[in-house]
Simulated scan of single mutants.
Amino acid sequence: MINVGIVGGSGYTAGELIRLLLVHPKTKIDFVFSTSRAGKPVTSVHQDLLGDTNLEFSSEINPNVDVLFLCTGHGNSTKILQDFTVSPGTKIIDLSRDFRLADNNSFGNRKFIYGLPELQKSAISDADNIANPGCFATAIQLALLPAAHISALENGIHIHGITGSTGAGSSLRDTTHFSWRDNNVSIYKALDHQHVGEVTQSLTQLFPDYNSELNFVPVRGNFSRGIFISAYTESDLSLEQAQSLYEEFYADAPFVHLSEEPLHLKQVVNTNKCLLHLQKENGKLLVTCIIDNLLKGASGQALQNMNLMFKLDEKTALQLKATHF
């Protein structure tokens, strides 16, 4: 059995991770660390797990677990590794953005591999430390990587993305308050979102001469979970050529699927799937992409990475049904 530790146990991503690990046939949760909830039942926060676990939040970190998931806020993973001893033999999967970029992907002797399985499955399988991608970054990359693979992103890229309120985390803030969010949408961090750096890094990995402008406008949606991305760029590819390109690129990606029909978000909520739809109009290739921000955009992808690191089937504990109705 893989002995698992979780730090930052009271947030949304930790709750989803615990849910998945409890049904994973090869894992045992050693501890769920939380400074604010120590000694209280995990179900006092993650009430959807009532009846599934008797775990309590821990005030201590076992440094010798097989794998440690850091489900902390951005900037806090570095602090955790500074303040607590972790065995050199413990693998780490970090869900913050602390180690995602190549110019800041190390802590001491630990080097973090960027954990997008559809881009570098082999490197993940050999890694001891993973920087889990951001939710928006995951969806945008999966929409664009096949085109980057054949250097077909020479023109400007325009991206519109809408995300649910869980993408902002579990802490209360003005823009997650029900009265504000309900029946409302708003733009934030337009053309300056923190995930653009991740996307550019990966596109350049496949297309070294990539220097096109990436215009991303993120939007807060009035729903709880999910991300819907629409990206378009001028392209000489026919629709048939684009479909063949995407199908070939994702042939070994069990969670990425092309749809012949237009997408809607309920197809992926509660799953680790990414669904894509391609359209060609007036010389532009339009790619729509949908994921669950808490699963394929966070905890599901983290578990997929763990499966690869421990040489398990990457689909283990991740074959989930969408909440379609």
Rank of each mutant, 00 (worst) to 15 (best):
P63R: 08
K121T: 12
Q82L: 15
G134E: 10
D83C: 06
T72W: 05
K91S: 10
G115P: 15
I113E: 13
L95H: 03
G108H: 12
L95P: 14
C135S: 11
N129I: 00
L101P: 10
S122G: 07
R100D: 00
T78K: 13
D83M: 07
A123C: 02
T78W: 00
F107T: 01
R97T: 06
I61L: 15
G89Y: 01
K111I: 13
V67W: 11
S106P: 03
S87N: 10
I113M: 05
G89N: 06
F69W: 10
V65M: 09
P133E: 07
D94A: 01
N104D: 12
N132R: 01
V67A: 02
T72Y: 06
R100P: 00
Y114D: 03
N129M: 02
R110V: 03
I124S: 03
Y114R: 03
D128I: 00
P63W: 01
N76E: 12
T90L: 11
P63A: 03
T85E: 14
C71Y: 08
K91C: 13
E60C: 09
D98Q: 06
L116P: 04
K121Q: 11
A137M: 01
I130T: 14
E60M: 15
S106N: 04
T72K: 13
A127M: 07
F69N: 11
F136W: 08
R110Y: 04
F84V: 05
G75W: 07
T72N: 14
D103Q: 06
Q120N: 13
A102H: 10
A127P: 11
E118M: 11
H74F: 10
N104E: 09
K111E: 03
A137E: 05
D98T: 15
R97L: 13
N64A: 04
T85G: 14
R110D: 09
L95N: 03
G115N: 12
G73K: 15
L70C: 12
N62Y: 08
N129V: 01
G89C: 02
S87R: 00
F136E: 07
D94I: 01
L116W: 02
L116F: 09
G89W: 00
T138G: 10
K79Y: 15
N62F: 02
C135T: 08
C71P: 12
R97Q: 15
A102P: 07
G115A: 14
E118A: 09
